[in-house]
Computed example of a mutant assay.
Amino acid sequence: MTETALAFVMGAVSALFPVINVELYLMGMGALGGGVLFAMAVAAGIGQTLAKVVYFYLGRGALNIPWLKRRAETPSKWAERAERWRAKAEGRPLWTMGLVGVSSFSSIPPFMVVAVLAGTLRMPLLSFVVVTFVTRTARFAALVYAPGVAMGLL
């Protein structure tokens, strides 16, 4: 499997199972170098975006996947905050897109929670996909090039 295809798979799987870390994989590949780093960032961005659509549709109530529902409904320290974000975002599409973008790029608040929230708020799917793809790809590009930049500074 090529590095780009593996980045896509890692991106998709890590989006569904957060214990798998695509960021570490991309940074490791960046440390090894190679000419396909940006392609890997794009592939991981596509994989993450497609997989996060599952959480988006879970928020819309369109999917009935028991283990995903349990993850989305499990009370946590973020549950109260998620309710406040929902209240702020309701009826404010630009605020919602901003929240999705910030969360997608920084993972604060956790993007899995925000993806469910975006679905709950009926954010247009196209807006969710575009914002998610652009910000996730930017995040992954920064990470895949970080080792080379760090080595260049030494």
Rank of each mutant, 00 (worst) to 15 (best):
G119V: 02
L94T: 13
A142T: 09
V100F: 11
P110R: 06
K88A: 14
L50Y: 08
L154Y: 02
V144W: 04
A41V: 01
A7L: 05
T74S: 15
A62Q: 13
R70L: 14
A142P: 07
T96C: 14
E23S: 12
V144Q: 07
A41G: 04
V102W: 09
V102Y: 09
F128Y: 11
R122S: 14
S107E: 00
V100H: 09
Y57A: 04
R136A: 09
L68R: 00
F111K: 03
A79N: 02
A7G: 03
A79S: 15
F56K: 08
G28W: 12
G34W: 10
A15H: 00
L99Q: 05
L24G: 15
W95E: 12
L117P: 10
L154W: 11
A115V: 11
R136D: 01
S104K: 05
I20F: 14
V144N: 07
F38Y: 08
S76A: 14
M10T: 12
E3D: 14
R139S: 04
P75L: 12
P109V: 13
G148D: 08
V113D: 06
L154D: 04
G11L: 06
A39Y: 02
P110V: 11
V102D: 02
F105K: 00
S106L: 15
W78R: 06
L58C: 10
L6I: 03
L68V: 08
G101C: 07
A115I: 06
A43C: 10
T135F: 13
R139G: 05
V131T: 12
L26A: 08
V113I: 15
V129C: 14
A115Q: 07
A118S: 11
Y145P: 07
V116P: 08
V54N: 05
M40A: 00
V116T: 10
L63C: 10
G45A: 02
V130I: 15
A51R: 06
G35K: 10
I108D: 13
S76K: 10
T137P: 06
S107R: 00
V36N: 14
V100N: 03
F133Y: 13
K69W: 04
A138T: 10
F140D: 03
